[in-house]
């Protein structure tokens, strides 16, 4: 045998896998019929819908806000740059749960919110509790917090693009915003997307924190069910199955997006050459 160590490892893993399959099938504690009963039940699907809506909207706020904050952070204007730095410091430096509670109880601080001229007359004013309901507080908490993390991810991406690109675009007479949109951001995307995929998958599960302000999503729905029927393990399996399904979908989607922004790079996804078995020979450069 040429690789005795490798064969030994394979054998050990095969035995462990067999034991795992065996226990999953034979241990009655898993209660697979209960899992099947609840997988597509109304409350679970309701929670799933909220998880999806919160994830999509929070990530949208996070990505758009993150791009804005990153551009501000890199601005030559010291005021814009510092405002962005303070925002990132504040929102990354305080617990998300505290931020969610803060938005939910904003009315305690400001009972009414108004639009008007600063220090001057007001045009319209709102009751804070009506304007920021539970759902809006969830979005503010999750989205604004995410924007701070996304800002650093986007900044890293923008800084990874060679300065020569900005100079070439500038020399052609393109404006700063045209250069950002058409030249720098599309190239930065290759660096931005993998960690954004991480953030999205993480957000999927972080949405369960909204329970602290009384809102509900997938995990909360499942907890409510097992707190009455005590089928804890089967219901956690229900939640886990849905999370895994969504994560799989996201990973597939991420693959497509990465391929789109990988145009023009002979290397493909970062690192694929480093870890491929037989490196391609003789690409047409130089």
């Amino acid at each position: 045998m040429r690789h005795p160590g490798r064969w030994l490892a394979v054998a050990v893993l095969a035995v462990l896998a067999a034991m795992l399959v065996n226990t999953i099938l034979t241990n009655d504690g898993f209660r697979w019929p209960v899992v099947g009963e609840y997988l597509f039940s109304g409350p679970v699907l309701n929670g799933l819908r909220n998880t999806l809506v919160l994830t999509v909207l929070s990530m949208a706020i996070g990505i758009v806000g993150g791009i804005g904050l990153a551009v501000m952070r890199l601005s030559p204007n010291p005021v814009l740059s510092s405002v962005s730095a303070v925002y990132i410091w504040l929102f990354r430096g305080t617990p998300l749960i505290a931020q969610l509670l803060f938005w939910n109880f904003l009315a305690a601080l400001y009972p009414r919110l108004a639009l008007g001229i600063p220090f001057g007359p007001e045009f319209i004013s709102f009751d804070t509790n009506q304007l920021i309901n539970q759902f809006a507080a969830c979005l503010l908490g999750l989205g604004l917090n995410e924007a701070a993390y996304m800002a650093e991810i986007v900044r890293g991406g923008l800084q990874s693009v060679d300065d020569g690109q900005t100079e070439a675009a500038g020399a052609l007479g393109m404006s700063r915003s045209q250069t950002l949109r058409r030249i720098v951001l599309p190239q930065a995307m290759r660096v931005i997307i993998p960690p954004t995929g991480n953030e999205t998958i993480s957000m999927l599960k972080t949405t369960s924190l909204v329970v602290v302000i009384g809102y509900f999503e997938l995990l909360t729905s499942v907890q409510r069910i097992y707190s009455t029927n005590f089928q804890t393990i089967p219901l956690l399996i229900v939640a886990a199955a849905w999370y895994l399904a969504l994560t799989s979908l996201l990973s597939i989607g991420q693959g497509f997006v990465e391929r789109h922004y990988g145009r023009g790079t002979s290397r493909g996804p970062t690192g694929s050459r480093l870890f491929s078995r037989a490196p391609e020979q003789g690409t047409a450069t130089g």
């Binding site: 020569g164 070439a168 020399a171 007479g173 404006s175």
Partner: peptide, 23 residues
């Protein structure tokens, strides 16, 4: 910045390291 951009439209530049847009 927009006025500088307007002036640059009439001045072509070629760089040592090409700086083509790789995407």
């Amino acid at each position: 910045e927009s006025e500088v951009a307007r002036q640059r439209r009439d001045i072509g530049m070629v760089f040592q390291r090409f700086n083509l847009f790789p995407h």
